[in-house]
Structures are given as C-alpha cells and as structure tokens.
Nucleic acid binder design. Structure first.
Lengths: 207, 207
DNA sequence: GTCTATATCCAGATAGAC
DNA sequence: GTCTATCTGGATATAGAC
C-alpha cells in the first residue's frame, strides 16, 4: 500500500469521513477515532494528514458553511421576480437538506458556540450580505408596487421562508413523536412539503 | 459553611448551573468544572450531589424538555378555535424561547443524538400525542367546515407555525450576519415577530 | 504513506481530611 | 457538607519502525 507522495484518495476519504462525523456529532462530540475508522485508516494517519482535530474541523466547517450559504446567496441576490425567488429558495433548501439532514443543526450549533467564525468566513469568501438583501428587498418592493403581493417586511419574509424549509429537519425527532410518523411517513411528509410551503407563502402574500 | 443534611441551596445552585452550562454547550461540550465554577463550588461536591455527569444531564434534559413541550401540548390539545390556538402557540413559543434562546437547539441536538430518549420521556410523563393531534385536527376541520379557513393539512400547518416561531432563534447568528443586525436590532425584529407570524399565517389561511 | 506503540493531557470520578 | 489531593480512563497527539 506504500505510495510516494500525498495520496489524494486517502485525503479525500478522510475529509469525507470527517465531514460525516463532525456534522453528525458536532465538534465536541466527534472522536478522531471514529473519523479514522470511518475513513478506513487509523488515528496516526489522520494527524499525519491534518495535524490536529481543530485544523481538520476548521476545514470541514468552512466547506459545509459554504455549501449551506453560497447557493442560497446566489438565489436571493440574483435576478428574477419575488415568486421566482421564493420557489427557487424552497426548491434549493429542501433538496440540499434532504440529502444531508443534520447539516443545519450542525451549522447553527457551532455558530452559536462561536459566532464570529461566520463573520470571518463571510469576509474571506467575499460574500456580500448587503447586496444580497438589497436585491431581495427590491424584488419585494417591485411585487408590492405591482400589487401582486400585499405589503410585507422583506426581512421577515425571508426569515419566514427559510424557517418553513429548514425547521422540519431540525425538529425531525419531535415531529415524528408528536405526529406519530415512522421514517417512511416522515419522508412522505417532506416530499409534499415543497409544494405546501410555496402554496402557504404565496397564499399569505395575496393582496 | 458546614451544614448537616443535604443543602437545598447548594443543590439548587448546582441544578441552575448545570441547566445553564448543558443548555449552552450540549452534553459533549459541557465540562463538570464549568458547572462547578458556575455554581460556586468544586467538582468533588458535584459528584457528591449527583454521582455522575450522565445522571446530572438526564435530570436537566428531562426538565428542559418538559418546559419545552408541556405548555405547548396543553395549548394544542386544549379547547378553543383554530385561530385561538395559533395565537396562543405563537405567544407561548416566542415568550418561552426569548427568555432562554438556546433551549431549542439544545433539545434538538441532543434529540438527534438519541431519539428514543424523547419517546421514553413521553411515555413516563403520560403525555398523549395522538389525543393532542386529534384535538388540533378537529379544530382545523371545524374551521374549514365553517369556511373561515381554506382546506389545509393539519400536520403541515402545525409544523408551519412552530417553524415560524422557533427557527429565528436557532438561526440567530446567521440572521444577524445576513441582515446586518446588531443585538438590539435583532431583539426589535423578534418583538415585531409575534404579530408578524400571526398575520402571516392567518392571511395564508383565508379561504 | 501507513502502521504499532507510546507519550501527554484532560476530564470524570473517588478517597480522605476537616 | 465541603474541601484538597489523587486515581483512572479516554482522547489527542507524537515517535519510530516498515
């Protein structure tokens, strides 16, 4: 198995494993040993590739946060009518989170633990919140002026849409218990939800 | 400082401290040492009172989960029209979480880590999800029959209302960054939100 | 580059004095 | 009941052989 230089296969295996374990357990709950096993190697090799748990975590977190934000930022800040944006946000959010259900809670948990991290990352990535919100506010204003939607605060509306998409995944165990769903039924509920959210929001916005 | 029997003051101080630290850091991130310092005592005394970290955590979690659910269950399962229920849920949720912002993320994180915990606790507490949902479904059906609201799935509606209330707190650091709010402005946004949510939901439900 | 073995550190838990 | 000192286990990190 001896290779000569840094093995990309191994490096990728580690990063994949780290992503999985950190996302599921959080930084404090993650064990280097579990990451190693998941990657099919041993702890020593982990440290050979990424020196420390902190360093590895930083890489993973940055990557995951980007996943979570970048697509979204593009939609919110991009062109299109308000209705287009809302539909695209719902589509994007639900698909993204469905394929990695514990992503949001991971991001939020680590972010509450260390809020400046986000600010630092945002600066580095060159993302521009104020441009993005400006575009969104503009779309809202346009729709209101055209009388296709009732007057509403753009900030609150954006929070509403995100809430409706993300929360069900965060609260999954609770919802399953309260509504007595098994995994299959929960999945079915989520599938209906894209349409449900768009309908719920657009219906609320009718003038 | 020597007392003779179990000191209620100390016990309470410990539980308060544990509640605070566990809720903020999660089980894995919490340190017995931090709890001790927060309670103004030392680690040894912690163990004297509550034997182990696990035991202490179980107490705290059970208490917190009850806080989160019980009031809510009463509202959802209780009497009143659909609109009454919705208003009461929003009122209750926002007030509760405002006074302890990292409660939801704590519950959800620990619950994903160990989903059966909730089921066990529910059984012990005698809570009855199916009765509760039945009452809620009934309220929805009644409102639909009376034509005061459009037809809608009761389960999805309940998720919608909870989402709108809880998510903003979970996503606080993100919202602050994206919408460029400081703490004061965030607080103002939340204050407006009770009214905003009720309006948003009722407006969506119009037939 | 990958492994086994080991060092180091830290956090939970106990012993024993007061 | 409360403290200081200590034990023990587990987890991160390094050394060194292959």
């Amino acid at each position: 198995m001896a290779k000569e230089k840094r093995d990309n296969g191994t490096e990728k295996a580690i990063l994949d494993a780290a992503r999985k374990v950190f996302t599921h357990r959080g930084f404090a709950g993650a064990r280097m040993d579990e990451i190693a096993r998941e990657a099919g190697i041993n702890r020593a090799l982990l440290h050979y590739y990424f020196r420390s748990k902190d360093k590895l975590f930083d890489l993973v977190f940055a990557q995951r946060a980007r996943e979570f934000f970048l697509g979204l930022a593009g939609i919110i800040g991009g062109p299109g009518s308000l209705e287009d944006k809302i539909k695209a946000i719902v589509e994007h959010d639900i698909d993204m989170i469905r394929s990695q259900p514990d992503l949001p809670i991971f991001i939020m948990q680590e972010l509450t633990q260390n809020p400046d991290r986000l600010v630092r990352m945002a600066v580095e990535s060159g993302a521009n919140p104020s441009m993005m919100m400006k575009a969104f506010r503009h779309a809202v204003k346009e729709a209101v002026d055209k009388k296709v939607v009732r007057p509403i605060d753009a900030g609150q509306l954006l929070i509403n849409v995100m809430s409706l998409c993300v929360y069900p995944f965060i609260a999954k165990p609770m919802i399953k218990a309260v509504q007595e769903l098994d995994d299959k039924q929960f999945e079915k509920m989520i599938l209906k939800r894209k349409q449900e959210i768009v309908e719920f929001v657009m219906s609320s916005l009718k003038p």
